[in-house]
Structure formats: structure tokens, C-alpha cells
Design a protein around this nucleic acid. Structure first.
Length: 425
RNA sequence: GGAGAGGUGGCAGAGCGGUUGAAUGCGGCGGUCUUGAAAACCGUUGAGGUGUUACAGCCUCCGGGGGUUCGAAUCCCUCCCUCUCCGCCA
């Protein structure tokens, strides 16, 4: 959520940001409601001040044994008037908040302005030694490999749950588990994050806090009976841990890493992109979340990005980093990098991680603040997160890149101590 | 799921219709004293909104929402949460 004061004072900058993000511009409507709201507040408060003053006077009169009937009658009328104004105020304020919830975060000034995902900018690329894009081997894709090696069972997943719910079998399951443990350990021990194992179902407030609701409602599963939502990412429960808290300045930065299953309806996205692991309704992801002081958030963004990249370097998977342009930036993000891993069989890059700075957008929604000794008032923290990483896309690259000419898969060296075996097949 | 108890400032804990935004204690901050520290003593110490160049002023907030009343932390309704006991259960 943007600060209404900021919108009031910088309407043109807000309009431009909204336009660049290709979202709906409601700024004029918002400003009109804001003005109406402030008028109502002034009128109501004037009456309330009068009422408070007179009511105290009534107390005094009664204590002195005098009559106050006429003043009481007058205040009854004032009370009615106040109620009318307050009802109107509630209505106007509600409309205003609703509109504000749909206003996207503004892109940071460093973000390239663009029209489509084609306009994303590749900022770096890393290839393992000896790696070559050109190879005369015929690569089996991850679906064929998964089937041949009896590691992945998409058909049975579809039977027990539906399409997009893969089952990991045997060494496939072990490899998945190894990958999760390896990534967690790396972030905890080498990069210094604190581990969180969060709930996988959250309430509506949490989904609003990080910005999934109301805008992305169609992409979320919902357990309506209990008012809960299966999380689309661990970002939601972890960031919301500190919802409505005022942290101490010296507690920052807070750096969490957590594993969760992630649930996404992926409404309306069928077709080629959705085969196998490329688009699924449930997948596993290790997520990093940071709560930091505003002035450090862009340095922290670079640090999270490097922490995510480190996973791929350890695994020796080729990857590239894209800086997203304004049109591809998500609703809540001010700046975002995507990290894509190489899929030889698909012959293309696959998004395996997304690293974002939300500045104070989520913090304002979730009311997460901090206060230092020298500070007069609490301020909103900046929140960031990054996948570190999502296993489904990563698994595609690992299976395809580590396959041998005989159709076996070598377990990446850093995972071997986790799996207890070195080769699958 | 059933029965009961309770939710007040950073924490503990009073208040139960009228100068109570809230006693008291602890903690925090500032000061006096001290070579320094502790102790003691004095002062101070919540948030949001509106408004102002900035102050001031004013409004709101005692789990959330609604109601009664001239006036509510205090009374009523409702929802949520926590704790205890019973039942069920990985």
C-alpha cells in the first residue's frame, strides 16, 4: 500500500509509476475520496470536542446537585449528528482503503521502463567450467528421465489430486529432500539466516499483508470453511510473523530462511508451458525473507541475490540474472531480479528464483515498524525476499544437465552427502 | 467437540458509569549524588489521525466490531484469541 500522504503530494509520480506497471490508475478518484474524508473528519471532530466538553460539565453540575436536563437534550441531538457523520466517514474511508489496496507499488527509479517481458535486461550470466550450450548429445527432457528412472510420477499425481501435483518416487523423492536440506543448510550456515518452519495455511490478514490479496485472489487456493489460504510461498507466513509489531532498531536486519510447500491455482495457464514440472499447483521452495532499515534495502537486495546465486554455483547449474522492467514487475515489488537456470531439453532459460525489494509497501499493509532510540516516531521497515530456490524448475535443470549418455543421472557433488547415493539409474 | 476462566501501556497489575490515556510496581530515558559504579532521590516515558512552515490545539484507541447513555476501560450484544479441565487424535 502506498502512503496516502505521498499520493496527495506526488500525484503525477504515482500516475507515472502505475502507467509503467500497466495497472489501473485510480489516483483522481483516490484524491477526491481523501478530500471528502478529511472534510468529514474535521466536521465530526468539531462536534465531538463540543460533546466531550459539555458532558464533563454535566458531570460537574450533577455532582453539585444541579439540573442539566436542557444541555443533555441538546447533546442528544449533537450525538445523532456525529453518528451520521461517522457513518458517512466509515463509508468513505472504506472505499478509499479498498482503492488503495489495488494500487501497485511504484517501480524504483533504477528499474528500466518497458512494455513486455522482452524488455527485461540480462545483468549477468554464469556458466560452470567445461559447460557448452552446443552438444551433439540428444537430451532427454525431465519428464522422460523422470519416467525412465522411476523418480517422478505425474500420472498418479493427477489421479490422487489432479494435474499439476507431481509425485516424487524413490530416489526422486530423496533427491528432492536432499536439495531442500542442502539449500537450507547453505543459507543458515554460510549466509547466516535464521531458519523458520512456517504454517502452510494462513488467514486473510496475512494474505493482504504481503499483497497477494485482493489482487491475486484467483490464483490462490482457499479453504473457505475456515477462512484460511494455502500459502503460495513461504514469504507470506514468514513476513507476516512480525505483522503489527514495532521492532527495536537493533533487531534489524532480520534474516529468515524457510522451507514450505507452495500452492498455486495457476488459473487459466494451460498449454505447452504447463507440461511436467514447468508449471505445477504444488511445489517446494526455500525462501529467504529480510526485514531491514529503509536506507539499507537496496544493498540487501544485492546480497539476497548473491545468496540465491550461490546455490546454483554450488550445484554447478548455468544461470543468468535478469533485471525485470516496469511492465514485468509484480504488484508489490519496487525492484526485482529473476534468476533463470538453463534447460538443455527445452533449450531455454527457466525462472528458478525471484528476488525482490518491496520497500515499505508490504510493511505499510502489514503494519511492521521499527523504532530506534534517536527516533521520535516508529517508521516502516523495508521487506525483501528471494527464492533460494524453487525446487521444481531446479530439478528440471539438474536432471537434464546431469544426465549421462546412458540415460542415468549423476547426483551433483554437493548433494551426495544428503542423498547417500551418487547416481540414479 | 463439551465445560469454565480470562484478554488493560515494554512487562506485571489496579480500576468496574463522570477531570482515568488510565493508580501502583518493574523496566526504559534524562538528571542529582559518586573517583567510577550500585543504591537512593527527582523528573520523564504509548500509538494513530487531523491540523500547523513548525508548535499548539482537537479527535480516536483499555482484544476486534456493534449498541445503550449527556458521558463507557467500566453496562449489553457479537466475533476473535489465550489459559484450565474433559472428550477425540497424528
Amino acid at each position: 500500500m502506498l502512503d496516502i500522504k505521498f499520493i496527495r503530494e506526488n500525484p503525477e509520480a504515482v500516475k507515472e509509476g502505475i502507467k509503467n506497471k500497466k495497472e489501473k490508475d485510480t489516483v483522481d478518484e483516490i484524491l477526491a475520496l481523501d478530500k471528502e474524508r478529511r472534510n468529514l473528519i474535521q466536521n465530526a471532530e468539531e462536534l465531538k470536542a463540543k460533546k466531550n466538553k459539555v458532558s464533563k460539565e454535566v458531570g460537574r453540575l450533577k455532582a453539585a446537585g444541579e439540573s442539566a436536563d436542557d444541555v443533555m437534550a441538546e447533546m442528544r441531538a449533537v450525538g445523532e449528528e456525529i453518528k451520521t457523520l461517522d457513518d458517512k466517514l466509515r463509508e468513505v474511508a472504506g472505499k478509499l482503503t479498498e482503492l488503495l489496496m489495488w494500487v501497485p507499488n511504484l517501480p524504483h527509479k533504477s528499474v528500466p521502463v518497458g512494455q513486455t517481458e522482452e524488455d527485461n535486461v540480462e545483468v549477468s550470466r554464469w556458466l560452470p567450467e567445461d559447460f557448452s550450450f552446443e552438444s551433439d548429445e540428444k537430451f532427454l527432457d525431465h519428464i522422460e528421465l523422470g519416467k525412465k528412472l522411476n523418480m517422478l510420477d505425474f500420472e498418479r499425481g493427477a489421479k490422487i489430486s489432479g494435474s499439476g501435483f507431481p509425485v516424487y518416487v524413490g530416489k526422486g523423492a530423496s533427491l528432492e529432500r536432499a536439495l531442500i536440506n542442502f539449500m537450507l543448510d547453505l543459507h543458515i550456515n554460510k549466509h547466516g539466516y535464521k531458519e523458520i518452519f512456517p504454517p502452510f495455511l494462513v488467514n486473510e490478514e496475512s494474505m493482504k499483508g504481503t499483497g497477494q490479496l485482493p489482487k491475486m485472489a484467483d490464483d490462490m487456493y482457499a479453504v473457505e470453511r475456515d477462512g484460511l489460504y494455502p500459502i503460495p510461498t513461504a514469504e507470506v507466513p514468514i513476513t507476516n510473523m512480525h505483522r503489527s509489531e514495532t521492532l527495536k532498531e537493533d533487531e534489524l536486519p532480520i534474516e529468515y530462511v524457510g522451507y514450505s510447500a507452495c500452492f498455486r491455482r495457476e488459473a487459466g495457464s494451460y498449454g505447452k508451458e504447463s507440461k511436467g514440472f514447468l508449471r505445477v499447483h504444488q511445489f517446494n521452495k526455500v525462501e529467504m525473507v529480510k526485514l531491514v532499515k529503509p536506507e539499507t534495502s537496496y544493498d540487501e537486495l544485492e546480497k539476497i541475490r548473491l545468496d540465491a546465486e550461490d546455490v546454483l554455483r554450488e550445484l554447478k547449474i548455468p544461470y543468468r540474472v535478469l533485471e525485470l522492467n516496469t511492465s514485468d514487475l509484480s504488484f508489490a515489488a519496487a525492484k526485482c531480479y529473476d534468476i533463470e537456470t538453463w534447460s538443455p531439453a527445452e533449450n531455454k532459460w527457466l525462472e528458478a528464483s525471484s528476488v525482490s525489494n518491496f520497500e515499505d509497501f508490504q510493511a505499510r499493509r502489514a503494519n511492521i515498524r521499527f523504532k530506534g532510540k534517536e527516533m521520535k516516531k516508529p517508521e516502516f521497515v523495508h521487506t525483501l525476499n528471494g527464492s533460494g530456490l524453487a525446487t521444481s524448475r531446479l530439478m528440471v535443470s539438474i536432471l537434464e544437465i546431469y544426465q549421462t549418455p546412458e540415460g542415468k543421472v549423476i547426483v551433483p557433488r554437493v548433494l551426495q552427502k544428503y542423498t547417500g547415493f551418487n547416481v540414479i539409474g
